[in-house]
Computed example of a mutant assay.
Amino acid sequence: MPTTQPEQSHTYRNVMESLVVEEVDHQCQHLPTRVANYINKTEVIAYALNRLPPMYATSQQGWQQQRNRASREMHNQIMMAVRQAIAAVQRDPLRSATPLKVEEDRNSQTALQELQELLRTDELSWQNVVDVVEQTLIRTARGEVTWRKRGAASVQAGDWHDNRYFL
């Protein structure tokens, strides 16, 4: 069975993203106000990035080197990709889309995992969270569950037994 690696913090970045954002801002400043107000910059950025090669860096030195290289060698390509993106997004001004909620989804999953640990149940999901919390509160009121502050020095891994939960 293959092992999965723990999720790493974001230790790499695509240099093209910042260059495209700058170019979108620059080009939008030169548009008539009534046109600029109807442009979804996020869609323009995504459209342009999908037409440019990624250039990733994992260190500050690499970031600066890639940024200098992209600015020098790909300026015209970036400018044209953004121009095309603005034209494409302008063609369909009535289209609406639901934006991605990446960070919100990640935060929700983290909160659910923390609740699973706190309530000591693997059976917890967003569909049953209210029922599980309610049952735990009832068991606490009956004295079946004992809570202590999380991270207290007296709480050891072996203390979790006999339906005793320590918070």
Rank of each mutant, 00 (worst) to 15 (best):
K41V: 00
P53T: 00
S96W: 03
V89E: 11
L112N: 01
E43C: 03
Y56E: 05
A87C: 03
T4N: 08
Q64E: 14
I86E: 06
S18K: 11
Q113Y: 04
D131T: 12
A46E: 09
E7I: 11
S108L: 14
E23I: 03
Q127A: 14
P99D: 05
M16A: 13
Q116R: 15
K101C: 00
L19P: 02
H161L: 14
T33C: 01
T11R: 11
L118H: 05
D159P: 01
R120P: 03
W63S: 05
V130Y: 06
R51H: 14
E7C: 00
V15E: 02
I78D: 01
T3I: 08
R51N: 15
E144C: 00
V89T: 11
L19N: 04
A157Y: 12
W63M: 11
M16T: 00
M1Q: 06
V35P: 00
S96H: 11
L31G: 03
L115V: 01
S18Y: 04
R69H: 11
T140S: 08
Q8N: 03
S59Q: 06
S108E: 13
E114I: 03
D92W: 05
T110K: 13
R67L: 11
A81I: 07
N14F: 05
W147H: 10
N128R: 01
Y12I: 08
M74E: 13
T3K: 09
N68K: 10
H26V: 02
E23N: 07
T140F: 14
E144I: 01
L119D: 07
D162N: 15
V82D: 06
S125N: 08
